[in-house]
Design a protein around this nucleic acid. Sequence first.
RNA 1: GCGGACGUGGCGGAACUGGUAGACGCAAGGGACUUAAAAUCCCUCGAUGGCAACGUCGUACGGGUUCGAGUCCCGUCGUCCGCACCA
Length: 876
Amino acid sequence: MSNERYNARDAEPRWQRRWDDEAIFATRNDDPRPKYYVLEMFPYPSGRIHMGHVRNYTMGDVVARYKRAKGFAVLHPMGWDAFGMPAENAAMANKVHPKSWTYANIETMKGQLKSMGLSLDWSREVATCDPSYYKHQQRMFLDFLKAGLVERKQSKVNWDPVDQTVLANEQVIDGRGWRSGALVEQRELTQWFFKISQYSDDLLAALDKLERWPDKVRTMQRNWIGRSEGLLIRFALDSATTPDGESEVKIFTTRPDTLFGAKFLALSPDHPLAQAAAKDNPKLKAFIEECRHTGTAREAIETAEKQGFDTGIKAAHPFDPDWKLPVYVANFVLMDYGTGAIFGCPAHDQRDLDFVNKYGLGNTPVVCPDGQDPATFTITDTAYDGDGRMINSRFLDGMTITEAKEDVAKRLEAATIGNAPVAERQVNFRLRDWGISRQRYWGCPIPVIHCETCGVVPVPVEDLPVQLPEDIAFDRPGNPLDRHPTWKHVACPQCGGKGRRETDTMDTFVDSSWYFVRFTDPWNETTPTTQSVADRFLPVDQYIGGIEHAILHLLYSRFFTRAMKATGHLDLDEPFAGLFTQGMVVHETYRRADGSYAAPAEVRIESDGERRRATLIATGEEVTIGSIEKMSKSKRNTVDPDDIIATYGADTARWFMLSDSPPDRDVIWSEENVQGASRFVQRVWRLVSAATPLLPEPGTAIDPAHAGARALRAAAHQALADVSNGIERLRFNTAIAKLYAFVGTLHETVDDPAKPLETDPAVAAAAREAFDILVKLIAPMMPHLAEECWAALGHRTLVSQAPWPEVEEALLVSDTVTLPVQINGKKKADVTVARNAPNPEIEAAVLALDAVKSALGGKPHRKIIVVPQRIVNVVA
RNA sequence: GCGGACGUGGCGGAACUGGUAGACGCAAGGGACUUAAAAUCCCUCGAUGGCAACGUCGUACGGGUUCGAGUCCCGUCGUCCGCACCA
């Protein structure tokens, strides 16, 4: 065997250069073969890539290389999600311009990605901060505006006091800004909105068709969109108790069946009627103020106590004008859902029950669970929201909930107050419009001009892009665009009068909502898309990224696809046909005695057989091995991809990323397991080096009658079938397990003391085929090693361009099968029979087995179950 | 609170639509080679009983369906994730 070690540091750059020189990963838009679009979520250019990127991009690259070998015109591009806050933070902290900071980071990270050996078409690279990209985004903004998909409105917004910007609801997590972590405040501002809610129904319904999306993500989006069917009911107000000008209140309910259990109405503190009532009621006014404050603090989780204030207003029950219900203002009623008002049925809604128990309004159960006696069924602390029959509900009594809902809806639709029906059926969504205004510099400028006479005027398309000014100061927080001395002062395109540019920029989620479209023709300077090309390559066949984008990015992209279709930029229903969410890369943490963290690179791990100990390399100080956590700077448990590639090579890193865990689960980065991957790289190289001199020319005919040759071919084709299947199903860890096993088999052949490889031409010919297959199988995962082996095996082509081998199915089935034999479901023996042996023959063979005879002890069996090709079970 | 996913050796995990539980990797132990170490190669490796052939138990726990259950059903416990006053 050769002693020469495989030198990744030498081989990897060499092959990368060759791929580059021959431009083998560039995709031609006129390639006539069937297309396959594989895409990984593009990175934010934060400075350096991290292990999460390595995992994400390795998975995508395996798919890209595999599909390319399968004969597809593969589109596999990369770009940069390059606008955003960190560039401005860096500008403030280090006096670097966001642009130079961003482009320097892109340069560094591009080099890192290249060192991973990814099969990307770099000629399609885009950066969202480049005017050549955001120009088209501005164009689409104007098109959306024209199409009625953009709106400017006053709204209560989530204000992040640290980043000094507005956040979308999706960007507020537990009441805190998703990036800054600061407690979010409520403010009234005029904002630009994309009318995503216009597509609520479609965005929801189309989820059912996204069969290649994880159920988890679809469920999350379903919940986020939050469709609920119900009834909008008008309650007439008692004029004697009601402020002038008010005569009714509208409420939304999904439980009209419980109308006879109503005890009160409740308004949101922001409800117009509440405001009106507060005018002459200082106590109510004070209460509303209080609600606002606790509302903004958002500590709702622990201080969830229901509070209300009786306005004194009385509302008439829709089925009984003499039945008056008190109208409260309550802190738990949300203004921006439904109508901002509810009716409370305490017996069947926990919130309402908590409320009446506090204010002594009582409750009447109107739904009685089956098996309970309606006469004695009572509610005290726990509302009943299950199924049952209507009680205490006059004409509804005895009906099911569904029947009662229908009956109430029909009656109230037919009834009228004034000239309008009392109620109408309504569908409500939780999803609200997407506020895209950000008070930031480093984002895509919103292309409109505010004119003193004409109002809001779109920037003419021929004036695009509205470019960001480069002379900008970051000495204060807030929006530098707004403070720029000249940039915002322009003439109105309509009247030529005094105008002012919009100084808000777009949420960076806008940038990432269509980059996958732009990749199809990034060279088009005049329009955002070239429709024929976009329609050819889209949808993305396989999209891969983190679960953290399950809602925001993916929902926005789905909206954008619809909006682009509506404005004639695309003909596409859904952007991502297949979605895969990969798990995180996690690592142990190390803590010093003083509580500070130590980095993996500073620590030496030793095992004394019983347990693992960690010491600081520099001082020998013992450190505690802590829990396994997501890699993060704060826990200092990160591993730098550059270090790993320098030490082991990209192939080892790639192989490790795929091998240890199922790709949708977290993978633990462990030094021992990386070394295992590294050993495997060397093992493959040694094996190929040892075998090569003994192998005949590629394509040498193999004697089909030779048993040894056939066995070897069977192993190769089985591995081929298994690895292909693993990649197709994105089960990379199982594909890799099969490769380990296959290499083991080849090793046995090469190491066989009988030396058939040297003496038996049939075996040698089979081995030639097997080695060629092996190298093709490892190529998607370890492309550099594969190229090196491919060349060593005497090929002059690139394995990266070689076709995927075809499975010869005939090799996978043998003439005989060995079936496990069970007695009463426990395995006791094996039986080998002809593959197509009829059942009686198999039964006879089984009953003749010693193990079966002794187990039966001379008694007759009761039954034999033969599952063809699988198993035999004898029932004693 | 609501919704979802999961629970298999010392560890990561495998087991297609119910059909030989623990593939493959890591760690560990033993051996070969070596002056020695590294590297490499070979063997062992769920628990338990037995000298052994072999037996018994075993996929969080308790039931059930089935010739047969890690897989399906019911219940319990635990872990993780998402949403969180959405009427």
